[in-house]
Write a protein that binds this DNA or RNA. Structure first.
Lengths: 343, 343
DNA sequence: AAACTTTCAGAAACCGGTTTCCGACTCAAG
DNA sequence: CTTGAGTCGGAAACCGGTTTCTGAAAGTTT
């Protein structure tokens, strides 16, 4: 019995083959093997073929560490979510991962969990691993301080943005989304529109509220009461609608800052004897399928197209890596998805 | 003006420093610098200190590609989600990433999206990058064929399991979870328990249904009707409860295969004039906070403790990398979270 | 037949570290 | 003063590839 049997089936290797093994099997030098595998240099077709089939036979995959050592590139990027990976980060990450994977880049996942120490730890790790670039993302659209100063590699902020106007940030046009929501309600004949949303300290809440109010003002209309700031929860949606009903303010539509709030609102409206959309039309924000579709009736909602946003961020990062940075804040439009709650 | 100015502030480097630059600045050879930085060899304390401050001054971080080239290890693992990253993958990934990050390992994220071609592409990529190990995960607990045969590195399956009994799989004890749910209902005095769950072709649905029925049989009880297989949606939960009410089968509890189903059930019960938990107790599965807490009343639910499961999987992978594999299928208990829907 | 091109493959340097081996130096003991 | 042991730091090999440089062999021209 041989001391160490090489696997017979191609591709199923017990120990990764090196280029010297390929070269040995093909009867050439390592340098020649390298040229053959990468299509460089001038080789006889027969030689090239011999190397290629040797590589095939051994299931050869070049050691990326060796490759990056002399190319200086790792074909790797880091993705740091500053806060916990959640509902917003996922589509972002998927979009980014998709765009990067197509460019043969791999993605390091780092979850900083709202902890600045973890954030810096990950940054150092990524720099030590010589990633070609970094995407910074998070759960809130708030602008944040740059993750590091004078970094040797490009950084793109996705969803969140950097306070440094020279950094590249890709963010959804939340104001535009809110305007679209109001426009749709106006177009379907609503005139007394209330707004229920999240905490006033949240950037998203204030931006959307201001944009909604602005669009109403353009139409020469007053909002049905002041915007109601609270939490991003169903409970708050229910409570706010009860307050609205209790106050006696007339309203024929509610634009909510999130689908969860909208869903709570729908339940409270039904409990209060109001039909949706008959008496009151309802628009949410986020287009979170579980909420928007689980709602009765299914919810019209603003979609921030996070996956596309992630893809855009990744594309801009790739461009920056290739020497074409796009500094500044770039917004991407939101899309209104119309369902029964406003039909 | 000098042609290329080195940054004065430590840590803020425009181009990563190499160990030769550190050695030059410290006035020693590269080999000595390496020893000083890694605490190897015998060096005078003064020399070691000189190297350390030179490294500090230049913000030196060793190039991981170079390190892994001669250590043979990359301190990197791959995480492949065979289907789309979603609600189940996230806590898994977070747990795994947490356990791995503590061991200085970085995680490559791969989203195969239910596409076998993407899956193999990622597998090849990870092998080429010489990751030290791979975690395979997915959205369904179904057993799946091994991702590759005769791989040079350890693989751990988390949540999903491998059909090869020699592979290491870490899965939640769904049957145990279902039994806990039924036990809790029995302990709170319920005797006529119905079961509404997902599609019969889903492993989770059949396992949980069988365990629930089994536990009832042990107590000498019949279930309130046959288990109702459908979809994992609120709509199905509503529909199933309407069918139950229409059929006139008496029941005082419903154990649902998911929180979404349970939530739909809660709505339909309320609409049908049944009080929860007064007339009917309700238990869900997954303990998905948004659903369980948004439900009226908040939902008692079985938690699969996915984050802990991810951590366990990562720990087992680390052990395997260190030469202590733990082949076979390992289950982890579920936990029952009790809320108002059964109080 | 001599001189000049062209084709092709190997030797060697290099990327940025780690590690082994070896030599120079210091110091204490004989 | 010689010898042996112990300290310390440098030279060089090595990890696995890529690339440049060089030279041998073959073909072309006069």
């Amino acid at each position: 019995m041989p001391p160490r049997k090489l696997s017979e089936t191609p591709g199923a290797v017990a120990k990764p083959a090196t280029i010297s093994e390929v070269a040995l099997l093909a009867g050439v030098s390592v340098g020649t093997a390298s040229k053959a595998l990468n299509g460089r240099g001038s080789l006889r077709a027969e030689t090239r073929q011999r190397v290629l089939s040797a590589a095939e036979q051994l299931g050869f995959q070049p050691n990326r560490a060796a490759v990056s050592l002399n190319s200086g590139r790792t074909y790797t990027v880091g993705m740091i979510t500053t806060d916990t990976i959640g509902r917003f980060s996922i589509p972002l990450m998927m979009g980014a991962e998709d765009a990067l994977g197509a460019g043969e880049m791999s993605v390091f996942l780092c979850d900083a969990r709202d902890d600045p120490i973890r954030e810096q730890y990950y940054l150092r790790t990524l720099l030590s691993r010589r990633v070609d670039g970094i995407i910074v993302t998070g759960r809130r659209t708030h602008a944040r301080p740059p993750i590091g100063a004078d970094l040797p590699i490009p950084v793109v902020y996705a969803f969140i943005s950097s306070t440094d106007p020279n950094d590249c940030s890709v963010v959804p046009d939340e104001a535009g989304g809110a305007r679209k929501a109001v426009e749709h309600l106006l177009a379907t004949g609503r005139r007394r529109i209330a707004h229920i949303t999240g905490p006033e300290r949240h950037h998203s809440a204030t931006v959307r509220a201001a944009a909604a109010a602005g669009r109403l003002a353009e139409a020469g209309l007053e909002p049905a009461g002041a915007p109601m700031f609270g939490e991003w929860s169903e409970a708050w949606g229910r409570q706010a609608v009860r307050m609205l009903l209790g106050a006696g303010t007339p309203f024929d539509a509610v634009f909510c800052g999130s689908d969860q709030i909208a869903r709570g609102a729908a339940d409270a409206l039904r409990a209060g004897g109001r039909r949706v959309p008959g008496d009151v039309a309802l628009v949410g924000f986020d287009n979170w399928d579980v909420m928007a579709l689980g709602c009765q009736p299914p919810l019209t909602s603003v979609d921030m197209e996070l996956e596309a946003l992630g893809r855009t961020a990744a594309d801009r990062l790739l461009a920056a890596i290739n020497g074409e940075p796009s500094p500044g804040r770039h917004t991407r439009p939101c899309r209104l998805v119309i369902r029964e709650s406003t039909a």
